[in-house]
Simulated assay, not measured.
Amino acid sequence: MKKTLLILGCISLAIASCGNPGSTTEGSTTAASTDTETTVKAQTPSEMLPGEKLIATADCIGCHNKTQKVIGPAYVDIAAKYPSSEENINKLADVVIAGSKGTWGDLPMTPHPNLSKEDAKQMVTWILSLKK
């Protein structure tokens, strides 16, 4: 008797976990694809500012995040520390290209020697525009 109740309970749980009998797996996949496409469209590089596009295509995301410290500081923290001036933009662009150590802790920032000065300036300009 206990075995029968256990088996019936397992079968009931299996049937209940199958979900809505009117939905299909294909419909769920299509809905998920549409949601993903919408998310991707909302974040397309064509809607980003030039510096933001460059950051999105570079390796910056490995160490930085817009709002939270990862390995390096968050972009908003950088913007809070440095006023947006031509002097700071040039200085920070040089830091992006040459790398640095000690400004935000003991871990060094990796140099990006293949990045042009103009691209680095666009990236820094976007970062400094995040000042609250």
Rank of each mutant, 00 (worst) to 15 (best):
102 G>S: 09
64 H>F: 07
55 I>V: 08
47 E>T: 13
74 A>H: 08
86 E>G: 04
40 V>A: 10
131 K>V: 02
19 G>R: 05
64 H>K: 07
19 G>A: 06
130 L>S: 02
39 T>Y: 14
46 S>W: 12
87 E>C: 03
83 P>C: 05
81 K>Q: 06
36 T>E: 05
22 G>C: 00
3 K>Y: 08
44 T>R: 14
13 L>C: 06
96 V>W: 02
97 I>E: 12
92 L>M: 08
81 K>S: 03
102 G>E: 06
92 L>C: 06
61 I>Y: 15
72 G>S: 08
17 S>F: 04
30 T>I: 14
97 I>M: 13
98 A>Q: 14
89 I>F: 00
125 T>R: 07
25 T>A: 11
104 W>M: 09
13 L>Y: 01
95 V>P: 03
111 P>C: 12
6 L>F: 09
85 S>I: 03
40 V>Q: 09
15 I>N: 06
3 K>A: 14
62 G>L: 14
5 L>E: 04
40 V>G: 06
70 V>W: 03
39 T>A: 13
61 I>N: 14
36 T>L: 10
73 P>Q: 07
103 T>L: 09
91 K>R: 14
87 E>A: 08
79 A>F: 00
72 G>I: 04
63 C>E: 11
50 P>I: 04
9 G>K: 00
97 I>D: 12
108 P>D: 10
10 C>T: 14
88 N>S: 01
111 P>F: 13
89 I>N: 00
67 T>G: 08
130 L>Y: 02
98 A>W: 06
6 L>W: 05
68 Q>N: 12
26 E>W: 06
41 K>D: 15
118 E>F: 03
75 Y>A: 00
42 A>L: 11
81 K>C: 01
75 Y>I: 01
68 Q>K: 13
